[in-house]
Design a protein around this nucleic acid. Structure first.
Lengths: 297, 297
DNA sequence: CATAATTAATCAAAAATATTGAACATATTC
DNA sequence: GAATATGTTCAATATTTTTGATTAATTATG
């Protein structure tokens, strides 16, 4: 049986901060003998003496100092736990883990999160970037509470709720100097297949990766996320589809060209999804604001 | 005032593990109403309800589950603290942080640490590699409790105790094919200076770095530690001094040559040092065994 | 240097708190 | 529908904690 109590740690802490049993007792609205009692009980329980007499005062032993110092961490952890429990009780979860599909740039939802912080300053936000299947998987395996911008269908079986969110136009891009530009448009699959394309690696860890837009090509470069893919296109490393709204600036400046192709992307809406078992207010609040976001494109 | 007690967390934990108030009470050698009482008091203190009736049993609310799960971490932390306090009381510190100068390979002291684990299985060892001034500095700034293999003088002022430990012979090495080998030996400084040398970066963070064996050369490569320096020499990237005992194998196999130079290293003994304020048994034990180590070289 | 003031420990009495067990209400199980 | 199991309530009881007076030792003060 653990002889330690948080109350005893508070006493230990107060004695150290105030410098004496007397003033510690005063600050705790108790009487010195009450603290003596608490400390003796703890010493007896541990079988370790925490104070030793030095003149008319008691000073901490090495063990006492160790217990006091480490105990403070326990005390703050305990305070934090009380806070977060109260927060949970109000329906606001103390932590919200979000998977952001790489199609969506963080800048798009960070302002929302800032507004969330204004309402719940202590909430802990954990943002993860995921790719394709990885976005649903993160939700499915309870790595996150909310998935933003997932593509395709939610993993059916489990209690997942989702809805269609944005529909993002795709652009097939290449640099102006790229040899693919010399072909007549719209480009056929046969032509497209001749050039290196840029592919984002699926971030699924368990399920089979979703493949998107991979036309059985031998010629491709794998990258980690959408930002890398866009930069790869911009620097002429390959050709391929990207969300139109994310390359608008480059199209306007002429750094990239939007080529027409025979088989354009079938436009599927991005999804927002969460576990039905999660009834957190923060998740709910975010979902409601996300519904208002539009892409003018 | 924090309404949380470790005892209440234990009750919460037992109820969850046993599945009911009744069997939890049984496992705690108490009566169900006693647990009811504890839980109610906690609920009242928090202003949060932790259980809700579901049929004839009580089940955790979301807040209750949160408190229970996080509380378990608090409980194990508390157990650990009790253990380490008892350990401190015996004079054995629960953690020993060691700075190992890069001259000394870890293999040289790991067997000792293994023997320490046999005596104190729960001791936490924190081993850091340091270079030149960094080794003393780590001690000086209380980043470590014990410094092994430091070179030069201890930072005077503070209450640091140290003694001369090993004296390590230096060898000036180069690969057999290195052009420096074509010069007649002993090599003069003027000759040595013509070739690239390998220098270990001082790991000091605050004090001015000690420079050792830097002959105002323009031509050098900086590396992080002795192992990297030795490998750099072995692969012919540069020439320089290394501890003889660390390259013996390469000298024997003929991968490196020990060249004689006009100005050999002045041999200073490596030091072992610690703060006098640290009276830990583990530190003392290690220092005593370290005294017995010899380099047969 | 003597006196006053502090400090912590001790102890019996008082107060506060926790535990018990019986009684009860409600739901499952057989 | 009887038997069983669950958690709560409540008054009585047991235990623990707090108190305040007393003591002993040390330090500050005039």
């Amino acid at each position: 049986m653990n002889p330690l109590t948080l109350e005893a740690l508070q006493v230990l802490d107060a004695i150290d901060r105030k410098g004496s049993f007397a003033s510690a007792a005063n600050s705790l609205n108790r009487v010195p003998s009450a603290l003596s009692y608490t400390i003796h009980k703890l010493e007896q329980g541990l079988g370790v003496s925490l104070f030793q007499k030095q003149g008319r005062r008691s000073v901490l032993t090495t063990a006492g100092r160790h217990l006091m110092q480490q105990g403070r961490e326990l005390l703050t952890a305990s305070d934090t736990l009380v806070d977060s429990t109260k927060q949970v009780a109000t329906g606001w979860e103390p932590r919200l883990r979000i998977a952001l599909d790489t199609i969506i740039p963080a800048e798009m939802i960070l302002p929302l999160i800032n507004r969330l912080y204004e309402i719940q300053p202590n909430i802990e936000i954990d943002l993860t970037e995921e790719v394709l299947g990885g976005t649903w998987e993160a939700l499915d395996y309870d790595r996150v509470d909310l998935a933003i911008g997932a593509i395709g269908n939610a993993p059916g079986h489990k209690g997942i709720r989702c809805f269609d969110w944005l529909t993002v136009k795709s652009a097939f891009v290449a640099t102006p100097g790229h040899p693919v530009c010399r072909h007549p448009q719209p480009l056929s699959d046969r032509i497209v297949m001749q050039y290196r394309s840029v592919i984002i690696r699926d971030s699924s860890r368990h399920e089979a990766p979703l493949s998107r837009g991979i036309l059985n090509k031998e010629n491709f470069i794998h990258v980690e996320n959408m930002e890398q893919k866009i930069q790869a296109h911009r620097l002429g490393l390959g050709i391929g589809f990207v969300p139109h709204f994310r390359v608008e600036q480059y199209l306007q400046k002429g750094e990239l060209l939007n080529l027409s192709v025979e088989n354009p992307y079938t436009e599927e809406p991005l999804q927002i999804g969460w576990k039905m078992s999660n009834r957190g207010q923060a998740r709910n609040w975010l979902v409601e604001r996300l519904k208002l976001i539009k892409v003018d494109d």
